[in-house]
Amino acid sequence: MTGPRDLSPRDAWKRYVDRRRTELTDGSADSYHYRLKLFGAWCEDRGIETVSELNGWLLDEYRAHRAGEGIASTTLHNEMETLRGLVEYLENIGAVEDGLSKKVDVPRVPEDEQSRETKLATDDALEILRFHRSNDETYGSLFHAFLEVAWHTGARLGALRGLDLRDFDRDVGYVEFVHRPETGTPLKNKRKGERMVKLLPEVVDVVDAYIAGDRRSNHDEHGRQPLFTSTRGRPGRNTVRVWSYRATMPCVFGPCPHGHDPDDCEFRSHTHASKCPSSRAPHHIRTGAITWHQDRGIPKEVTAERVNASQRVIDRHYDVATKLEEMELRRGPHMDKLSLD
């Protein structure tokens, strides 16, 4: 009869991910699967047959191996942090020696790499929104309504994709994000991610116009009515990304900054939208939106509730200021104090 110490690395990491699936969103579980699959393959290449063979030296060898492949420091951090979780699990079931998890070196990410520097710039976002609001042809279009909601709520891709028609209240003026894993639209933070987010009247009007005009009256495979619909009902995650890329292209409101002719530019196609140097993914919209909330003086605790992120995470990752912006913040009301008069 075999015991936990006889587990192969492959069986161990699969068992661990299966145990965590009830706690993780599908996206997080997939990330764990990918990171640990790499570790399992490395163990097989090294001839490591059982997890009981693992020791501090081998774990350090794996860290050096991954670092030597030139991956980003944030990627290495996440991979080693996930590996530490696996080793802690193996400790708990008696598959490896106690204390082995403390020998997993999770590298610190340099502070200057912790912020998401790529974002949808405030000036670009506002210019696109003003263009749509003043343009009869595009007012209330899918791309317009999507960008208005994404920018004003700072919501994640999955949350935007999961919105139903019933989650939009035009009378009170809000959208409600609801965790519905049983029908394919979980929120990243599950029930803790549920919230109502107030919308400005002008944003409500845009969403109203979209529902009355551009929105397809489709249902998804579970019989739900998505707020933002595709030809097949609820859009897939990749479709939402493409909407984001196309909605943020600068040629929407002006000439192409890269010298392309919009009429024959391949970036404007569904399959190449992500290649436009100036287009932005949903997470970049979220980053820009959170920074905009901060710049507009919205209290940090209010922003945190609207976008479903802790104040600490907002400070570290999302409040991205340029060096010029930082100088202006430092200068602020204090420069007069340095006057010789």
Rank of each mutant, 00 (worst) to 15 (best):
R66S: 11
E44F: 04
D112N: 11
T75H: 05
W42P: 10
R316S: 07
R191H: 13
T153G: 06
H152E: 14
T231R: 13
P226E: 09
D319L: 05
D263N: 05
F39N: 01
E221D: 13
H222M: 05
H258G: 07
T229I: 08
S244E: 05
T291W: 03
L120W: 03
C265S: 06
L126S: 01
L163V: 10
D261C: 01
M249D: 14
Q225I: 09
R296H: 09
H77S: 04
N218H: 12
T118Q: 13
D105N: 13
A125W: 08
P277Y: 07
R316Y: 00
E176C: 06
A41G: 03
I285L: 10
M249R: 00
L38K: 04
H132D: 12
W57R: 15
K192F: 12
R66V: 15
Y62F: 15
G27E: 15
E69W: 03
L58D: 05
T82Q: 00
R156M: 05
K188W: 11
A304Q: 01
L58F: 06
F228L: 09
T239V: 13
V204T: 12
N55K: 00
A12H: 07
M335F: 10
V240W: 02
T248Q: 03
D295F: 00
L147G: 04
N238Q: 12
E49D: 13
D98A: 14
R195L: 12
V320I: 07
L200D: 14
E111M: 07
E325L: 00
D98S: 13
W57E: 15
N218G: 14
K188Q: 12
W57C: 01
D164Y: 02
E202A: 03
G140H: 04
T248G: 01
V106M: 09
N78Q: 09
S217D: 15
Y245V: 03
P277A: 07
P333Y: 07
V197P: 13
R195A: 12
A304E: 05
S274F: 06
D30H: 06
V197C: 11
K188N: 10
P250R: 00
V96S: 05
H77C: 04
S73Y: 09
R116N: 11
L338A: 15
W57F: 15
G223R: 01
P201F: 10
D124H: 05
D208E: 13
L83G: 11
E194R: 02
S134E: 14
G99M: 08
S141T: 11
H317S: 07
A281H: 04
R234L: 10
T291E: 10
C43K: 01
S279R: 02
H283D: 06
I285T: 10
P282A: 06
L36I: 08
S28Y: 08
H65V: 05
P235E: 02
L340W: 02
C276K: 00
A67C: 02
